[in-house]
Protein backbone atom coordinates (compact mmCIF):
# COMPACT_ATOMS: atom_id res chain seq x y z
CA UNK A 1 0.00 0.00 0.00
CA UNK A 2 1.21 3.48 -0.79
CA UNK A 3 1.61 5.78 2.18
CA UNK A 4 2.19 9.42 2.20
CA UNK A 5 4.26 10.05 5.33
CA UNK A 6 3.69 13.60 6.45
CA UNK A 7 3.04 15.75 9.45
CA UNK A 8 -0.60 16.34 10.43
CA UNK A 9 -2.33 18.51 12.97
CA UNK A 10 -3.77 16.56 15.92
CA UNK A 11 -7.10 18.39 15.71
CA UNK A 12 -7.70 17.01 12.19
CA UNK A 13 -7.76 13.44 13.55
CA UNK A 14 -11.23 12.11 14.38
CA UNK A 15 -10.58 10.51 17.78
CA UNK A 16 -14.24 9.60 18.24
CA UNK A 17 -14.23 7.18 15.31
CA UNK A 18 -13.22 3.75 16.63
CA UNK A 19 -14.24 1.82 13.50
CA UNK A 20 -10.80 0.24 13.13
CA UNK A 21 -9.98 -0.10 16.79
CA UNK A 22 -8.69 -3.56 17.75
CA UNK A 23 -6.70 -3.01 20.90
CA UNK A 24 -8.32 -3.44 24.30
CA UNK A 25 -5.34 -1.91 26.08
CA UNK A 26 -6.15 1.27 27.97
CA UNK A 27 -3.10 1.74 30.20
CA UNK A 28 -0.93 4.35 28.48
CA UNK A 29 1.59 5.02 31.22
CA UNK A 30 4.47 3.06 29.68
CA UNK A 31 3.73 4.42 26.24
CA UNK A 32 3.53 7.94 27.62
CA UNK A 33 6.91 7.59 29.28
CA UNK A 34 8.47 6.17 26.13
CA UNK A 35 7.06 8.90 23.90
CA UNK A 36 7.99 11.63 26.35
CA UNK A 37 11.57 10.35 26.29
CA UNK A 38 12.24 9.40 22.68
CA UNK A 39 9.24 10.69 20.79
CA UNK A 40 6.93 8.98 18.34
CA UNK A 41 8.91 6.20 16.67
CA UNK A 42 6.19 4.59 14.52
CA UNK A 43 3.77 7.06 12.92
CA UNK A 44 0.05 6.09 13.19
CA UNK A 45 -1.85 5.11 10.06
CA UNK A 46 -4.62 7.54 9.13
CA UNK A 47 -7.21 7.34 6.33
CA UNK A 48 -7.99 10.61 4.63
CA UNK A 49 -11.74 11.13 4.61
CA UNK A 50 -13.80 14.21 3.69
CA UNK A 51 -14.75 14.58 7.35
CA UNK A 52 -11.18 14.39 8.59
CA UNK A 53 -8.58 11.76 9.32
CA UNK A 54 -9.82 8.36 10.47
CA UNK A 55 -7.49 6.34 12.69
CA UNK A 56 -6.60 2.96 11.16
CA UNK A 57 -3.95 2.13 13.72
CA UNK A 58 -2.24 4.05 16.51
CA UNK A 59 -5.18 4.87 18.79
CA UNK A 60 -3.03 4.73 21.92
CA UNK A 61 -0.17 6.69 20.35
CA UNK A 62 -2.54 9.49 19.32
CA UNK A 63 -4.09 9.61 22.79
CA UNK A 64 -0.59 9.79 24.23
CA UNK A 65 0.25 12.71 21.91
CA UNK A 66 -2.82 14.52 23.17
CA UNK A 67 -1.85 13.97 26.81
CA UNK A 68 1.71 15.11 26.09
CA UNK A 69 0.42 18.26 24.41
CA UNK A 70 1.87 17.38 21.01
CA UNK A 71 -0.10 19.36 18.43
CA UNK A 72 1.49 18.05 15.23
CA UNK A 73 2.70 14.52 14.61
CA UNK A 74 4.09 12.37 11.83
CA UNK A 75 1.55 10.03 10.27
CA UNK A 76 1.28 7.54 7.44
CA UNK A 77 -1.63 8.77 5.32
CA UNK A 78 -3.71 6.27 3.36
CA UNK A 79 -5.24 7.87 0.23
CA UNK A 80 -8.95 8.70 0.35
CA UNK A 81 -9.78 6.31 -2.51
CA UNK A 82 -8.41 3.32 -0.61
CA UNK A 83 -10.95 0.51 -0.17
CA UNK A 84 -12.14 0.03 3.43
CA UNK A 85 -11.03 -3.62 3.36
CA UNK A 86 -7.47 -2.51 2.65
CA UNK A 87 -7.63 -0.32 5.75
CA UNK A 88 -8.96 -3.27 7.75
CA UNK A 89 -6.04 -5.40 6.61
CA UNK A 90 -3.67 -2.65 7.63
CA UNK A 91 -5.31 -2.33 11.07
CA UNK A 92 -5.12 -6.07 11.69
CA UNK A 93 -1.51 -6.44 10.56
CA UNK A 94 -0.38 -3.39 12.54
CA UNK A 95 -1.79 -5.03 15.69
CA UNK A 96 -0.83 -8.65 15.10
CA UNK A 97 2.77 -7.78 14.29
CA UNK A 98 3.11 -5.97 17.62
CA UNK A 99 1.76 -8.64 20.00
CA UNK A 100 -0.46 -11.71 20.25
CA UNK A 101 -4.07 -10.57 20.23
CA UNK A 102 -6.26 -11.42 23.20
CA UNK A 103 -9.69 -12.98 22.62
CA UNK A 104 -11.59 -9.71 22.45
CA UNK A 105 -9.03 -8.18 20.11
CA UNK A 106 -9.23 -11.27 17.94
CA UNK A 107 -13.00 -10.96 17.95
CA UNK A 108 -12.79 -7.33 16.89
CA UNK A 109 -10.31 -8.15 14.12
CA UNK A 110 -12.46 -10.97 12.78
CA UNK A 111 -15.56 -8.81 12.95
CA UNK A 112 -13.84 -6.02 11.05
CA UNK A 113 -12.93 -8.39 8.25
CA UNK A 114 -16.35 -10.04 8.26
CA UNK A 115 -18.06 -6.70 7.87
CA UNK A 116 -16.58 -6.37 4.41
CA UNK A 117 -16.59 -10.04 3.38
CA UNK A 118 -19.96 -11.63 4.16
CA UNK A 119 -19.33 -14.75 2.04
CA UNK A 120 -17.86 -17.37 4.33
CA UNK A 121 -15.53 -19.11 1.88
CA UNK A 122 -13.99 -15.78 0.86
CA UNK A 123 -13.84 -14.77 4.50
CA UNK A 124 -11.93 -17.94 5.35
CA UNK A 125 -9.28 -17.14 2.75
CA UNK A 126 -8.91 -13.61 4.07
CA UNK A 127 -8.74 -14.73 7.71
CA UNK A 128 -6.11 -17.29 6.78
CA UNK A 129 -4.01 -14.61 5.06
CA UNK A 130 -4.26 -12.43 8.15
CA UNK A 131 -3.43 -15.37 10.44
CA UNK A 132 -6.76 -15.05 12.26
CA UNK A 133 -8.94 -18.02 13.32
CA UNK A 134 -10.92 -19.60 10.49
CA UNK A 135 -12.98 -22.30 12.20
CA UNK A 136 -16.63 -21.49 11.69
CA UNK A 137 -17.50 -22.44 15.25
CA UNK A 138 -14.82 -20.18 16.70
CA UNK A 139 -15.67 -17.33 14.36
CA UNK A 140 -19.30 -17.57 15.50
CA UNK A 141 -18.22 -17.52 19.15
CA UNK A 142 -15.99 -14.52 18.54
CA UNK A 143 -18.89 -12.74 16.89
CA UNK A 144 -21.00 -13.38 19.99
CA UNK A 145 -18.14 -12.24 22.20
CA UNK A 146 -17.98 -9.04 20.21
CA UNK A 147 -21.64 -8.34 20.99
CA UNK A 148 -21.23 -8.72 24.76
CA UNK A 149 -21.13 -5.64 26.93
CA UNK A 150 -17.76 -4.13 27.76
CA UNK A 151 -17.74 -5.39 31.35
CA UNK A 152 -18.12 -8.97 30.24
CA UNK A 153 -15.48 -8.53 27.54
CA UNK A 154 -13.08 -7.06 30.08
CA UNK A 155 -13.72 -10.01 32.41
CA UNK A 156 -12.79 -12.39 29.59
CA UNK A 157 -9.61 -10.46 28.79
CA UNK A 158 -8.63 -10.39 32.45
CA UNK A 159 -9.22 -14.12 32.79
CA UNK A 160 -11.92 -13.61 35.41
CA UNK A 161 -14.39 -15.54 33.34
CA UNK A 162 -14.04 -18.11 30.59
CA UNK A 163 -15.29 -17.44 27.11
CA UNK A 164 -17.93 -20.14 27.55
CA UNK A 165 -19.33 -18.59 30.74
CA UNK A 166 -19.28 -15.11 29.24
CA UNK A 167 -21.13 -16.27 26.15
CA UNK A 168 -23.67 -18.16 28.18
CA UNK A 169 -24.25 -15.23 30.50
CA UNK A 170 -24.43 -12.92 27.53
CA UNK A 171 -27.52 -14.77 26.30
CA UNK A 172 -29.39 -13.97 29.48
CA UNK A 173 -31.54 -10.95 30.20
CA UNK A 174 -29.78 -7.85 31.55
CA UNK A 175 -31.45 -8.36 34.94
CA UNK A 176 -30.21 -11.97 35.15
CA UNK A 177 -26.73 -10.83 34.13
CA UNK A 178 -26.81 -8.22 36.87
CA UNK A 179 -27.67 -10.79 39.55
CA UNK A 180 -24.95 -13.17 38.36
CA UNK A 181 -22.26 -10.51 38.26
CA UNK A 182 -23.29 -9.24 41.67
CA UNK A 183 -22.57 -12.71 43.07
CA UNK A 184 -19.35 -13.14 41.09
CA UNK A 185 -18.03 -9.77 42.19
CA UNK A 186 -18.93 -10.47 45.83
CA UNK A 187 -17.46 -13.97 45.72
CA UNK A 188 -14.49 -14.29 43.41
CA UNK A 189 -14.38 -17.89 42.26
CA UNK A 190 -12.55 -19.94 39.72
CA UNK A 191 -13.80 -20.06 36.17
CA UNK A 192 -14.91 -23.68 36.58
CA UNK A 193 -16.95 -22.80 39.66
CA UNK A 194 -18.53 -19.84 37.86
CA UNK A 195 -19.43 -22.17 35.06
CA UNK A 196 -20.96 -24.63 37.50
CA UNK A 197 -23.02 -21.94 39.24
CA UNK A 198 -24.34 -20.53 35.95
CA UNK A 199 -25.12 -23.97 34.59
CA UNK A 200 -26.94 -25.14 37.73
CA UNK A 201 -28.91 -21.92 38.03
CA UNK A 202 -29.90 -22.02 34.38
CA UNK A 203 -31.06 -25.64 34.58
CA UNK A 204 -33.09 -25.00 37.73
CA UNK A 205 -34.66 -21.94 36.15
CA UNK A 206 -35.55 -23.87 33.01
CA UNK A 207 -36.99 -26.79 34.93
CA UNK A 208 -39.02 -24.68 37.36
CA UNK A 209 -40.18 -21.98 34.91
CA UNK A 210 -38.22 -19.30 36.74
CA UNK A 211 -35.56 -16.82 35.71
CA UNK A 212 -31.92 -17.31 36.60
CA UNK A 213 -32.28 -14.15 38.69
CA UNK A 214 -35.14 -15.74 40.65
CA UNK A 215 -33.01 -18.80 41.40
CA UNK A 216 -30.00 -16.81 42.54
CA UNK A 217 -32.06 -14.40 44.59
CA UNK A 218 -33.86 -17.14 46.48
CA UNK A 219 -34.00 -16.78 50.26
CA UNK A 220 -31.53 -19.62 50.74
CA UNK A 221 -28.88 -18.01 48.50
CA UNK A 222 -29.41 -14.57 49.98
CA UNK A 223 -29.04 -15.99 53.48
CA UNK A 224 -25.72 -17.55 52.51
CA UNK A 225 -24.53 -14.36 50.81
CA UNK A 226 -25.30 -12.22 53.84
CA UNK A 227 -24.12 -14.67 56.48
CA UNK A 228 -21.60 -13.36 59.01
CA UNK A 229 -20.50 -16.87 59.89
CA UNK A 230 -19.02 -17.82 56.52
CA UNK A 231 -15.95 -16.45 54.81
CA UNK A 232 -16.03 -15.97 51.05
CA UNK A 233 -14.79 -19.46 50.23
CA UNK A 234 -17.34 -21.02 52.55
CA UNK A 235 -20.09 -18.93 50.98
CA UNK A 236 -19.05 -20.08 47.53
CA UNK A 237 -19.05 -23.70 48.67
CA UNK A 238 -22.43 -23.30 50.36
CA UNK A 239 -24.01 -21.72 47.29
CA UNK A 240 -22.69 -24.48 45.03
CA UNK A 241 -23.90 -27.13 47.46
CA UNK A 242 -27.34 -25.55 47.70
CA UNK A 243 -27.73 -25.21 43.94
CA UNK A 244 -26.64 -28.79 43.42
CA UNK A 245 -29.21 -30.04 45.94
CA UNK A 246 -31.97 -28.12 44.22
CA UNK A 247 -30.85 -29.28 40.78
CA UNK A 248 -30.36 -32.93 41.75
CA UNK A 249 -32.72 -33.56 44.70
CA UNK A 250 -32.88 -37.37 44.46
CA UNK A 251 -29.18 -37.84 43.82
CA UNK A 252 -28.32 -35.44 46.65
CA UNK A 253 -30.64 -37.29 49.01
CA UNK A 254 -28.98 -40.58 48.10
CA UNK A 255 -25.56 -39.04 48.74
CA UNK A 256 -26.68 -37.77 52.14
CA UNK A 257 -28.08 -41.17 53.06
CA UNK A 258 -24.86 -42.82 51.95
CA UNK A 259 -22.77 -40.42 54.00
CA UNK A 260 -24.97 -41.05 57.05
CA UNK A 261 -24.59 -44.81 56.65
CA UNK A 262 -20.86 -44.42 56.22
CA UNK A 263 -20.59 -42.25 59.32
CA UNK A 264 -22.41 -44.92 61.34
CA UNK A 265 -19.62 -47.39 60.48
CA UNK A 266 -17.10 -45.21 62.32
CA UNK A 267 -14.28 -45.91 59.89
CA UNK A 268 -10.83 -44.54 60.67
CA UNK A 269 -10.01 -41.30 58.91
CA UNK A 270 -7.37 -43.21 56.92
CA UNK A 271 -10.03 -45.39 55.35
CA UNK A 272 -12.86 -44.61 53.01
CA UNK A 273 -15.46 -46.45 50.99
CA UNK A 274 -16.63 -44.64 47.87
CA UNK A 275 -19.82 -45.58 46.05
CA UNK A 276 -19.94 -46.12 42.29
CA UNK A 277 -19.98 -42.70 40.56
CA UNK A 278 -23.58 -41.51 40.38
CA UNK A 279 -24.57 -44.80 42.08
CA UNK A 280 -24.75 -46.18 38.56
CA UNK A 281 -22.50 -49.21 38.58
CA UNK A 282 -21.92 -51.84 41.25
CA UNK A 283 -18.26 -51.27 42.01
CA UNK A 284 -17.47 -49.67 45.36
CA UNK A 285 -13.96 -48.52 46.14
CA UNK A 286 -12.20 -49.11 49.43
CA UNK A 287 -9.13 -46.92 49.99
CA UNK A 288 -6.74 -47.21 52.84
CA UNK A 289 -3.63 -45.28 53.88
CA UNK A 290 -1.18 -46.75 56.34
CA UNK A 291 2.47 -46.38 57.32
CA UNK A 292 3.36 -49.70 58.84
CA UNK A 293 2.15 -53.11 59.91
CA UNK A 294 0.60 -51.76 63.10
CA UNK A 295 -1.51 -49.25 61.09
CA UNK A 296 -2.57 -52.01 58.75
CA UNK A 297 -3.62 -54.28 61.60
CA UNK A 298 -5.62 -51.44 63.16
CA UNK A 299 -7.34 -50.82 59.85
CA UNK A 300 -8.10 -54.52 59.58
CA UNK A 301 -9.78 -54.50 63.00
CA UNK A 302 -11.65 -51.32 62.16
CA UNK A 303 -12.91 -52.77 58.89
CA UNK A 304 -13.89 -56.00 60.64
CA UNK A 305 -15.95 -54.02 63.15
CA UNK A 306 -17.60 -52.14 60.29
CA UNK A 307 -18.55 -55.41 58.66
CA UNK A 308 -20.24 -56.51 61.88
CA UNK A 309 -22.18 -53.25 62.03
CA UNK A 310 -25.74 -53.63 60.61
CA UNK A 311 -25.42 -50.12 59.15
CA UNK A 312 -23.13 -51.47 56.45
CA UNK A 313 -26.11 -52.92 54.60
CA UNK A 314 -27.39 -49.37 54.11
CA UNK A 315 -24.42 -48.74 51.81
CA UNK A 316 -25.83 -51.29 49.42
CA UNK A 317 -29.54 -50.43 49.18
CA UNK A 318 -30.18 -52.89 46.36
Amino acid sequence: MDFNVCEVALHRIDQEDHSFRITTQRDKSSLLESMATIGLLVPPVLWSQPSGLTIVSGFRRIQACQRLGIQRLAARLVPADTQPLACVRMAVIENTTQRPLNLVETARAVQLVKKWIPDYSELTAELTALELPTSRALVDKLERLNRLNRDLQAAVVDGEVSLAVALETGLMSPSDQKVIWKIFSALPMSVSKQKEVVSLARDIAGRDHQTVGDVLQSDAIQTILHSDQFDRNQKTAAIRRHLRMVRYPNLSQAELQYQAALAALKLDSHMRIDPPPGFEGNLFTLSLRFRNRRDLEAAYRNLGAALENPAIDSLFPH
Binding site: D203, G206, R207, R247, Y248, P249, N250, L251, A254, P277, G278, F279, E280, G281
Partner: peptide, 22 residues
Protein backbone atom coordinates in the same frame (compact mmCIF):
# COMPACT_ATOMS: atom_id res chain seq x y z
CA UNK B 1 -37.31 -28.28 25.26
CA UNK B 2 -37.05 -29.22 28.94
CA UNK B 3 -35.72 -32.74 28.51
CA UNK B 4 -32.20 -31.97 29.72
CA UNK B 5 -33.40 -30.68 33.09
CA UNK B 6 -33.76 -34.19 34.49
CA UNK B 7 -31.45 -35.69 37.11
CA UNK B 8 -28.67 -37.08 34.97
CA UNK B 9 -25.55 -38.86 36.06
CA UNK B 10 -22.61 -39.97 33.95
CA UNK B 11 -23.27 -43.58 32.96
CA UNK B 12 -20.77 -46.39 32.69
CA UNK B 13 -20.53 -45.64 28.97
CA UNK B 14 -19.96 -41.93 29.73
CA UNK B 15 -23.39 -41.03 28.44
CA UNK B 16 -25.72 -38.89 30.48
CA UNK B 17 -28.44 -41.08 31.98
CA UNK B 18 -31.13 -40.55 34.55
CA UNK B 19 -30.20 -41.45 38.13
CA UNK B 20 -30.86 -45.20 38.33
CA UNK B 21 -33.66 -45.20 40.96
CA UNK B 22 -35.59 -42.75 38.79
Amino acid sequence: SRIMYGEFISGLDNKLRYFKPL
